[in-house]
Simulated assay, not measured.
Amino acid sequence: MNKIPRRVVTGIKDGKSVIIEDQQTENVVEHLPGLIISDIWNTQKMPAGLDFETRIPNTGFPQTPKNGTYFRYVVIPPDKDLGVEFKAGAPHPMMHQTQTLDYIIILSGELYMVMEEEETLLKSGDIVIQRGTNHAWSNRSDEMCIQLAILIDAENSV
């Protein structure tokens, strides 16, 4: 499984900032073959507290804490390796919706963001602002895609 470093620089020793954690992330799960999700950090309230972390379960579809945030590192394998079959005209089998505002950055590879009516190809360096709508990710390439996602609890004002 991917080795994902996590460095937490929030400690104070003798009145100076120190690194309190410098190790591989432990909260890593392979939910489907090759679909690796690492939950890096979360917050439980807004404004966010800086004093501690509460670990939450690593699930295939994120469960962002009410009034909180969720920071995920996601490795998405090619659809063919996942066993996902996307049929034109039918909803993508991984279509889902979260009640969050998501900031997503594609770190490497490429990935289609599939919406109910259309889709777009995302490549390394692309940024997505996902605002609580139905969506799916489809990797139609032969390479893994790595994305970072920050999910923020949100209210739907529509």
Rank of each mutant, 00 (worst) to 15 (best):
P5T: 05
V8Q: 00
V9G: 11
G11P: 06
G11E: 03
G15R: 00
K16I: 00
V18K: 10
E21C: 09
Q24F: 12
V28P: 04
L32N: 04
G34T: 14
D39H: 11
D39L: 15
Q44M: 14
K45N: 03
K45M: 05
P47T: 13
A48Q: 08
D51H: 12
D51Q: 13
E53C: 04
T54Y: 03
R55S: 00
P57W: 09
T59V: 12
F61D: 06
F61R: 07
P65R: 02
K66A: 12
N67M: 10
G68I: 08
T69K: 03
Y70P: 00
V74S: 04
P77Y: 09
G83W: 03
G83N: 04
K87C: 03
G89W: 11
A90C: 02
H92P: 06
P93E: 09
M94P: 00
T100Q: 02
D102R: 01
I104T: 06
I104S: 03
L107W: 06
S108G: 00
S108Y: 01
Y112L: 10
V114E: 11
M115E: 02
E116G: 08
E118R: 08
E118W: 04
E118D: 12
T120R: 13
L122H: 10
L122Q: 09
K123S: 14
S124N: 09
S124L: 03
S124W: 08
G125Y: 10
G132S: 13
T133E: 06
N134L: 15
H135R: 10
W137Q: 06
S138W: 13
S138H: 15
S141E: 07
M144L: 12
C145V: 03
I146D: 09
L148C: 00
L148P: 00
I150T: 07
I152V: 15
D153Q: 12
V158C: 09
V158H: 11
V158F: 08
V158G: 13
